[in-house]
Write a protein that binds this DNA or RNA. Structure first.
Length: 497
RNA sequence: GGGUCGUUAGCUCAGUCGGUAGAGCAACGGGCUUUUAACCCGUGGGCCCUGGGUUCGAGCCCCAGACGACCCA
């Protein structure tokens, strides 16, 4: 990448490193930091210039040089550690000739340094470490991005995420937020007597969702393996085993295109609760999102200029009603193949599609983008929900919901289908679709059906996309902004090696 | 997969009508012992994404490609 083809500038820095190496260990690990920048700011907040001068507070800080102001026989450095920034003041008189010359001759913006000194305030009141020693701990051999604008180039922000994080505070905040989200979710489920499990990422049958898997091969067993598209069928096996409340936060892999909403690997939360109805799962989902929004301080977020209150109750609407509302169809039409096809126009799928499939297609095409305020959509057609339990009164729909916020699907939950014979029949229906050309139709998992034959208690479960939740809370418009290392095409258009 | 826009110094960006490539930051040299996006003076730094084409002459116009951003599917 062009960012690293800085031959002259990095040669200058390498020359300084060579000079530093000649003095001894150029990459020492004997500097003992005693203070973080933020702690010093907090601890000494109420000490004015005079009080600090009297107290003689010693400090040892370390971090990267972000700014530097040389003034002949004195200089200011701004260094940054994981907690924030702190200013360093170095004087020729205070450090001595040789040590002061090192700052000018060996150190550059971007270098990692350790500083010992005494806390003071400048005439303008800024808390500052007046250095008694400064040592180079790790040389930065490339010029860092521009100090004021940071790193703007999107491609380089994704390809060299370390540079993005080094200079863009906004980017760091997104990933701190993400960490808080995950930890809030864990705390929530632990408080509700769930426990966390890990199920296989590599599966002999990739089932549990309508998606194409990545394929790999196990040499010793000489068998194909698939990266999972969902953990669902394994989690429900655990409920069969008596783990009545489980959750998993982990990666799924789907072999599909890249977009602002899709990355081939993404993170899902799934949880299952025995003896819970779909309504209880919905209530738990609302409670979860309320809790995460509160823990992250993001109860009010803005999507496409519209403010969304994540602490309020969420709307609920049946898919049939939602389709009528946004397409003008009547309730009599929503299971009528001809009426649905007319409404879909050019967006209609292949000719063999059933009424339920068409209704779902129409919902996706015409309704989803309008669901900006948090909204549960219920009553999904059975054909597009092969793992959901049929509604007791109306077998053509299932007891399932999806939660939409900002026009995007955030979560998907349902009352689990636990009749093994019905499940096998649904799998066979999926297989028929596959035979008819649907490459994403769900695979039959016979071992899962056998697990159901031992008895899955009535159960409710739900899956929630962590990346999309973080997008919502952070205001990110692309999934790449909430993934530390999003998948990109290789540089230069070639293959990796 | 389709459309639109973009790619110029290490970084952030200008570049007029087609006529020898510009700024700020960063670097290097000089000045400056309380600055803070420090400041002042000076110097160096370019595969203008790649490959073709048009032209006396292309960063600029045309064609193809690579990568990215946005929109659509």
């Amino acid at each position: 990448m062009s960012a690293h083809a800085d031959n002259d500038l990095s040669e200058q820095r390498r020359a300084k490193l060579r000079a530093w190496r000649a003095r001894g260990d150029a990459y020492p690990n004997d500097f003992r930091r005693t203070d973080f920048a933020a702690d010093l700011h907090e601890r000494l907040a109420d000490k004015n210039k005079e009080a600090l001068a009297e107290d003689n507070v010693e400090a040892a800080v370390a971090g990267r040089i972000m700014l530097r102001r040389m003034m002949g026989k004195a200089c200011f450095l701004t260094i940054e550690d994981m907690s924030g920034r702190i200013q360093v003041y170095a004087r020729l008189d205070g450090l001595g000739q040789d040590a002061y010359a090192d700052i000018e001759g060996l150190m550059d913006l971007g270098d990692i340094v350790g500083v010992r000194g005494t806390m003071m305030r400048t005439m303008r009141g800024e808390l500052t470490v007046e250095a008694t020693s400064i040592e180079l701990l790790s040389k930065c051999l490339h010029p860092p991005p521009e100090k004021f604008h940071g790193l703007v180039d999107q491609e380089m922000r994704y390809r060299a995420r370390y540079l993005d994080l080094m200079v863009n505070e906004a980017s760091r905040q997104v990933f701190r937020l993400r960490s808080t989200v995950v930890s809030a979710i864990r705390a929530f489920f632990e408080a509700h007597d769930f426990f966390e499990v890990e199920t296989p990422m590599m599966q002999p049958v990739a089932s549990g969702a309508a998606a194409r898997p990545f394929t790999t091969h196990h040499n010793a067993l000489d068998m194909p393996l698939y990266l999972r598209v969902a953990p669902e069928l394994y989690l429900k096996r655990l409920v069969v085993g008596g783990f009545e409340r489980v959750f998993e936060i982990n990666r799924n892999f789907r072999n599909e295109g890249l977009s602002t909403r899709h990355n081939p690997e993404f993170t899902m939360l799934e949880f299952y609760q025995a003896y819970a109805s779909v309504d209880e799962v919905m209530a738990l989902t609302t409670e979860l999102i309320h809790e995460v929004a509160a823990r992250t301080g993001r109860q009010r977020v803005t999507v496409d200029g519209k403010e969304i209150d994540l602490s309020a109750d969420f709307d609920v609407i049946a898919m049939e009603d939602a389709v009528c509302e946004y397409t003008g169809l009547s309730l009599d039409d929503v299971w009528n193949v001809d009426a649905l096809r007319r409404a879909l126009g050019d967006d209609a799928p292949d000719k063999r599609a059933s009424a339920g499939e068409l209704l779902f297609a129409l919902f996706e095409a015409r309704v989803e983008p309008h669901l900006v305020m948090p909204t549960y959509v219920t009553g999904y057609p059975s054909e597009v929900s092969p793992l959901s339990r049929a509604n007791d009164d109306r077998p053509e729909i299932v007891d399932r919901f999806e939660l939409f916020v900002g026009g995007r699907e955030i979560a998907n939950g349902f009352s689990e289908l636990n009749d093994p014979d019905e499940q096998l029949a649904r799998f066979h229906a999926q297989e028929a679709r596959r035979a008819a050309g649907d490459a994403e139709a769900m695979r039959i998992d016979h071992d899962y059906v056998r697990a159901l034959e031992y008895g899955l208690p009535p159960t409710g479960g739900q899956g929630l996309g962590i990346d999309r939740l973080v997008m919502l809370l952070s205001g990110a418009s692309t999934i790449r902004d909430v993934l530390l290392f999003p998948l990109l095409k290789p540089e230069g258009g070639g293959h990796g090696d």
